[in-house]
């Protein structure tokens, strides 16, 4: 991949840092300024443009990526924070060229129109399913101390509300998540969530 380094003039001034990021199982060595956001590092320096910039202020979720399996808004973080972590972007959701169950379900349920929010929705949903499986309650969970939650439509909608879609593909997105999830299990044990 064509990795763009900061121009030599900036390096000479000592403004850049050597940085190694592990993304989708691959190592990327960069030499960039510490003020580069993780989102811009992905899009502008590494060329992984699947992750989108929608608002650059953590309000739309288009930039959602996974760090060690957890979802974050990559626009709100600096790339230098993530050395030694495993980053997954939308480009890393498919395995060996096979779409993930969620990616396939997004296509089947028309969970997108223009497609710009889609990478964020996919990454967010991928981690959200894990959060749920790990017993993390949401604002609409009826009983946060419960041993089990139902993976209801209401829970999905609440947990996905940080990902905006202006085309209005929300119905297809929720259906896709339900389908991808139901291929596993419908309720999960309250295992690892601690306040």
């Amino acid at each position: 991949m064509n990795i763009k380094q900061n121009p030599s003039g900036l390096q000479a001034n000592g403004f850049t840092l050597p940085l190694s990021l592990s993304i989708n199982g691959k190592q990327y060595d960069l030499n960039i300024e510490p003020r580069v956001s993780l989102l811009d590092a992905l899009r502008e320096y590494i060329g992984l443009t699947g992750t989108k910039k929608g608002c650059n202020q953590g309000a739309c979720g288009a930039c959602t990526v996974l760090v060690d399996g957890e979802r974050i808004n990559s626009c709100m973080t600096l790339a230098v924070q993530y050395q030694g972590k495993e980053i997954t972007t939308v480009e890393g959701l498919a395995e060996d060229g096979n779409l993930s169950a969620l990616q396939q379900a997004f296509i089947e349920h028309d969970g997108f129109q223009c497609g710009y929010c889609t990478p964020g929705q996919l990454c967010s949903a991928t981690a959200m399913i894990e959060e749920f499986k790990n017993g993390m309650p949401s604002a609409v969970s009826p009983d946060v101390a419960s041993e089990e939650f139902e993976f209801s439509e209401k829970e999905i909608k609440e947990r996905m509300s940080g990902n905006l879609c202006r085309c209005g593909a929300y119905v297809g997105i929720v259906e896709a998540i339900q389908e991808a999830f139901s291929n596993k299990e419908t309720t999960v044990a309250h295992e690892t969530f601690y306040l």
């Binding site: 899009r43 992984l48 443009t49 699947g50 992750t51 989108k52 910039k53 972007t89 939308v90 480009e91 959701l93 498919a94 779409l99 990616q103 396939q104 997004f106 296509i107 997108f112 497609g115 710009y116 889609t118 990478p119 996919l122």
Partner: peptide, 14 residues
Amino acid sequence: GPLKVTGKAMYAAE
């Protein structure tokens, strides 16, 4: 669809 769910669809800034 496959391009859009894998991040391969190219938008103007990409």
